[in-house]
Write a protein that binds this DNA or RNA. Structure first.
Lengths: 136, 136
DNA sequence: CGGGATCCATTAGGATACTG
DNA sequence: CAGTATCCTAATGGATCCCG
């Protein structure tokens, strides 16, 4: 599947690796998306928004443990990636709503299938860990 | 989808978040797998092993840019998770072969579908980024 | 050959305080 | 309410040397 040997993609040895002939442009983009998937909060925020739009404070409540800083950074990145929208209403008190885009929804589905895979193989992996951890 | 509010799962406000009633045991495990998926090398190593077993040096060559340290750490974690096997042959010179387990293969398939999603929506996201980046 | 040990730079992320 | 700004720590990862 390759995914991102972007860093080393300058020399000559790049065509033998897991990524064969994928355009470098897609590579670093895939890397970025993978980083989002792997980071601590993006998926939780997306999951929280799955049921419908939420405002800042609601997000902070529905994603327990997130700091203001990380919430701000996360939604901003998701917004730049086109996964969520940010809508500010000029009212007092101010109101801002975040919502998933269709893209965001489809990513949520994909990741859900990943989670499902994990759940399906949970027992299997736990078992394997148990007897590799205790094997001196 | 939830996935890992494990950190904050001690108090009372946990049943409103994206993860509703998922057992905490599965939660931190899902988090761990997600971290693997998100880290820099795991997927590349898995991808490199997809075609067949490789030895240490071959992996180092087929995953361009990886350091010895990270290769060692990565294969060890993948091994603990039951995604790859490590087989050492008592020969001289020493030989060690890494191979994907069935579990590793199935994870590779899942992640491939994620990559496919990214590839499918690549243009869409790029476009969106273009006019959010230049929008003052 | 297949690593282990060590040192160092970068980064992600948490806590807190303050603001329009 | 919805952030911004600042400081600080822990984890990630690269480079290098060494060893069985």
């Amino acid at each position: 599947m390759c995914a991102m040997d972007v860093a080393a993609r300058s020399g000559a040895a790049a065509d033998r690796g897991p990524c064969a002939g994928i355009p470098a442009e897609q590579m670093d983009f895939i890397r970025q998306v993978l980083d989002r998937v792997g980071d601590k909060w993006s998926l939780l925020v997306i999951a929280a928004l799955e049921a419908g739009p939420l405002r800042y404070t609601d997000l902070q409540r529905d994603v327990p443990g997130i700091s203001q800083r990380m919430l701000t950074l996360t939604v901003r990145q998701l917004q730049q990636d086109g996964l969520v929208t940010r809508t500010a209403y000029a009212e007092v008190p101010p109101r801002v709503e975040y919502a998933l885009t269709p893209l965001g929804h489809s990513l949520h589905h994909i990741v859900t299938s990943l989670i499902t895979w994990v759940a399906d193989h949970y027992g299997q992996i736990r078992e394997h860990r148990a007897h590799t951890a205790t094997r001196p």
